[in-house]
Design a protein around this nucleic acid. Sequence first.
DNA 1: ATCGATAGTCTGTATCATCGACTAAACAGT
DNA 2: ACTGTTTAGTCGATGATACAGACTATCGAT
Lengths: 142, 142
Amino acid sequence: MAKSTPDAELARVLLEMCCVVEGIRGTVSRDLELTPQQSQLLTAVAERELTHGELATRLHCDKTNVTGLVDRLERRDLVRRRPDPNDRRVARVHPTDRGEELVARFRDAVTAAIETRLASWPSDLRLRFAELAQTATGALRS
Amino acid sequence: MAKSTPDAELARVLLEMCCVVEGIRGTVSRDLELTPQQSQLLTAVAERELTHGELATRLHCDKTNVTGLVDRLERRDLVRRRPDPNDRRVARVHPTDRGEELVARFRDAVTAAIETRLASWPSDLRLRFAELAQTATGALRS
DNA sequence: ATCGATAGTCTGTATCATCGACTAAACAGT
DNA sequence: ACTGTTTAGTCGATGATACAGACTATCGAT
């Protein structure tokens, strides 16, 4: 496992970090009786209402998949479909009060988990890391 | 969406970065006709042979799930189960030649995708980011 | 009014993920 | 040796995720 090139090493590290964050997200989701996909959808629509198509893009999945995801969350009264008055084809998904509350708990739990694990880091390092990660995320999205 | 605290903001960024990396991993996996889970399992056993239990831990899933994952990859001649001579209960999973080759292609494609997207970054910044992410990953795992 | 594009749904199929029950093997204490 | 316990992996059943293809309804532009 030689670090062939710096960029290959960066790729490896990012995949590994992704895996670790997935672990945290999975544990927290399970505690809230959500699947990881459900918590992802919920946090996405918590920022602003999204259409099925936008959700498909955001979650990197097919729109036919989004139908089922929203169905299951709607059945649990966590999100609602709001028909767009201007375009009767589109359905905008937004969280209910219960959904918002669950998102808040989700965020808090993830924050607490990360806080605990990075407790030994000085706060300026955490800040620097967050900034760098933010910039990288923006660049990686394009 | 006020950034309530720096740590909440860090949590948000990490979840977002995780989502973006999942997108890259998903696209690359699909090009190689793998599911994301399959590419994760393959890259895991490419480093060293792992038992089903170790894989379950690594992939954050149940051991009963690993059976099916390994079954499907074995059917495609990408991994093999090797019985442990010292403990006849355990099966160690290792990649075949085809599997190793696929892992190499997977890593290369992810590296290329990241390289492209971070092309505008100076190489020392990429290195600094990789180091920071590596350290963070180690801390987050515990 | 018609045509093409778009948004979402439905059906069918494969994979992922877990639970509970089970088998086989290793291990501990008597 | 002989139990009882633990551990590793499998099996069956069930629900969730993911996608392809076909479909409906609607919008937009001719």
